[in-house]
């Protein structure tokens, strides 16, 4: 009994124990390399596809701004929630964060965008503002004038007999210029984000 008590006390005068008691430190304050931090630029050229801004769920978190003669995505700390969706959405791998890009490559995943144009026929007056404002329409039919009439079949939408008609929804790039130019709030663009995974075949990398 007495001996075991002495043995017990002896534990506390061991140099190693005293050193640990006084100077023990947990791991230093560094983030591990796999931590998904604020997205960082990889150095690849931004093509102004704006998919990052479309995917971002946090208001005001990402903005693609002019830098020299090109573009660069700018992350606003205090708004960004570090979800990494912009990293996944960018088709040009301009941003990186943690090991998102490596995981996407390994698992064969990607994010695809598509857009739905919804026009409320009760609100629409057929003014054609949206048709003339749309930059894709402008490329397809440079002659389209006020009123949104066009004989071109390649446009996204045009006004026919006083009614708006959507012809090529698939060409929409989701810029929402039409939404801001509509005087009645009749046109709405829904951005649809789909996650895809390429099935990995056995034995093939």
């Amino acid at each position: 009994m007495g001996l075991s008590f002495v043995w017990y006390l002896r534990e506390f005068v061991r140099a190693e124990w005293i050193k640990k008691f006084l100077f023990a430190r947990t791991a230093p304050l560094v983030s591990p390399s796999y931590f998904r931090g604020f997205p960082e630029p990889t150095g690849k050229t931004c093509q102004h596809a704006l998919f990052c801004m479309m995917a971002c769920p946090a208001p005001g978190a990402i903005e693609v701004v002019h830098a020299g003669d090109g573009w660069i995505p700018k992350i606003h700390k205090g708004h960004c929630i570090r979800c990494g969706l912009c990293v996944e959405a960018c088709p040009n791998e301009v941003l990186t964060s943690g090991r998102i890009l490596e995981t996407m490559e390994r698992e064969g995943t990607s994010l695809l965008f598509s857009f739905r144009i919804a026009i409320d026929k009760d609100l629409c007056t057929g003014c054609g503002n949206c048709c003339t404002a749309c930059p894709v329409n402008k490329q397809a039919d440079a002659q389209m004038g006020a009123g949104g009439h066009s004989s071109n079949d390649e446009v996204i939408m045009r006004v026919q007999e006083g009614d708006i008609m959507v012809i090529h929804e698939d060409k929409c790039t989701g810029c929402k210029t039409c939404e801001t130019s509509c005087p009645n709030g009749a046109i709405r663009i829904a951005r649809i984000l789909e996650g895809y995974q390429q099935p990995v075949q056995e034995g093939i990398q």
Binding site: P57, A58, P59, G60, H76, G78, H79, C80, I81
Partner: peptide, 12 residues
């Protein structure tokens, strides 16, 4: 956090 800076996702 983001909330006291910007309201994060709640500032809508």
């Amino acid at each position: 956090g983001n909330c006291p800076i910007s309201g994060c996702l709640f500032d809508r």
